[in-house]
Design a protein around this nucleic acid. Structure first.
Lengths: 233, 233
DNA sequence: CGGTCTCAAAAAGTCAGACTTATTCATCAC
DNA sequence: GTGATGAATAAGTCTGACTTTTTGAGACCG
C-alpha cells in the first residue's frame, strides 16, 4: 500500500514477510539463505539483504552454521508498520485488529487531552474542518468520503498532541479505521452519535478543555471497542 | 545493551544509527554507499546490508542515481527498540525520555485494568513477588535491587494485560526506568508512597478490580510525569 | 525565449564466485 | 562420563564486472 516491493529484495520481503508473520514457518523453523535465494531466483546478496531486514524486525535470527531461524511471535517488532501491514493482510487480521483497537483506546484519549493543551490555531482549524467533513459525509452512503475525514481527524488529534510517539501511531490508526470500514462492520451510514462526538472533541480541543476532550475521545474509542465486542456492556 | 554489534554490518549500524538519530546528518543529507564503505573500511555488500536495515527503520531512503538520503525525524520508526536505544544514548535523551514517559502514562493504566481481568494465577503471584521485592529493597540505598523488581513489576503488568502491543512495550518501560534511576533523579531511597502503590496495584489485580488497578497505576505514572516536571501541579 | 528531446554520466542494484570464520557435532582419547 | 580434536557446514566477507534507473545538461526545435 505505502511501500510497494521496491527492487528485488523488496519483492522477496513482500513474500517472506507475510509468510512468516502468518505463521507459515513456526518459531524455531530453520531456513537457509542459499536455498531461499534459489527459491526466489535471486542472488545471495539480495537474499542476504532481505534476511537482514527481517532480522532487524526481530522476525528471524541469523546464526552461523545453523541458518536463519524464525523467532517466536513474542519477540517480533509488532510496532513496525511493515509488520503491522503484513499481519493485517494475513490470517490473524481479526486478532491484530483487536490488539490495535485496544491500543488506540489507551492512546487517543491521552492524545486528545494533550492536544487540548498544545494544539496551535492551525491544528484546531484543521480538526474542525475534519469534523465538519465527517458531518457532511455522514448521510447517504458516502462512506469513502467519511472515512477520509475520519482518518484525517484522528491523525490530526495525534499530531496536535505534540508527542512524537503518539503522532507516529497515525498510520496504525488509519489502517485500523480503513480496515473496519472496508471489511468488517459498517454497511450503513455511521452512527450519528459518533459523528457528534467528533465535533464535540474538536470544540473541546479548541476551548482548551483537556478533561472534556479526553472524556469525549474515550467515548469514541469505547464505541470502537464495542463494535468488536471487546468491551463487556 | 541487548544487541551488541554482531558482525561487521552490526558494527557499522552501531556507528551510523546513533549518528543519524542524533541529527549529525540533517534531513535531506545525501550519503553514498561507496564512500561510506570506504569510511568504515568494509565491503560494499556489508555496507549495503547496513543501509537496508536503516532503510527498514525509515531513517534513510535509498534511490538510484541520487544516493542514500536521510529522512526527516517525523518519518522514523520511533517504536523500533534499536532506534529508541540509539536516541536514548544520544543528545535528545531528555526529550526522548519525556515522550516515552507520556506514552507509559497512557498505556500502563489501561494495561493494569486489562491485567485485573485477564491475569492468571501465576501472573498474579509474580506480580505480588515483584511488589514485595520492591518493598524489601526500598530502604538503605539498594537502588539496584529495587530497580530490578520495579522493572519486573511493570513488565509483569504489561504481559498480564494479554495484549501483545502492550506487552511489547516492556523493553521500553525498562529502558525508561533504568534511565531514570541511573542518570536523572533518584539519589536517595524511593518514595515510600510509590512503593505502597505498587503493592496495592498487585492486590487490585489479584482481586480482579479493574477500576482500582487502573486508578492506582495512573497515580504511579502521574508520579513519573511529575518527576520530569511534565505535569502542571 | 521556452519547451521538449536525446544522451551520457552517476549511483544504486544485481550477480557470480572465491574465500574466511565461527559453530556445531561426532569421534576419540583419557 | 568428560574433555579435547577435528571435520563439516552455513553464514559472513570481499572483489570485480555488469545492469538499470534516474537525472541533469545540452542540443534541437517551436
Amino acid at each position: 500500500m505505502t511501500t510497494p516491493g521496491r527492487g528485488l529484495h523488496g519483492h522477496v520481503l513482500e513474500t517472506l514477510g507475510p509468510a512468516i508473520t502468518a505463521g507459515e514457518y513456526p518459531p524455531g523453523s530453520v531456513l537457509r539463505t542459499d536455498e531461499l535465494a534459489q527459491r526466489f531466483d535471486v542472488s545471495r546478496s539480495v537474499m542476504r539483504e532481505a534476511v537482514r531486514v527481517l532480522e532487524s524486525m526481530h522476525l528471524v535470527e541469523s546464526r552461523r552454521r545453523v541458518g536463519v531461524t524464525v523467532r517466536p511471535k513474542s519477540e517480533w517488532n509488532v510496532y513496525d508498520p511493515q509488520v503491522i501491514r503484513w499481519r493485517l493482510a494475513g490470517a490473524d487480521r481479526p486478532h491484530q485488529l483487536r490488539s490495535l483497537t485496544v491500543l488506540r483506546s489507551a492512546i487517543e484519549p491521552a492524545a486528545a487531552a494533550l492536544a487540548a493543551k498544545n494544539a496551535t490555531a492551525e491544528q484546531c482549524a484543521e480538526l474542525t474542518e475534519c469534523a465538519l467533513g465527517m458531518v457532511a459525509h455522514s448521510r447517504g452512503h458516502q462512506l469513502a468520503g467519511y472515512l477520509v475525514h475520519d482518518v484525517a481527524f484522528h491523525r490530526a488529534i495525534l499530531n496536535a498532541s505534540g508527542n512524537e510517539m503518539f503522532a507516529r501511531l497515525g498510520d496504525v490508526v488509519a489502517e485500523v479505521l480503513a480496515g473496519r470500514t472496508h471489511h468488517e462492520v459498517m454497511f450503513e451510514d455511521p452512527d450519528p452519535a459518533a459523528v457528534t462526538l467528533h465535533v464535540q472533541v474538536a470544540e473541546a480541543v479548541r476551548a482548551g478543555d483537556a478533561a472534556r476532550a479526553e472524556h469525549l475521545t474515550r467515548e469514541i474509542t469505547v464505541g470502537a471497542l464495542q463494535e468488536l465486542d471487546i468491551l463487556a456492556p
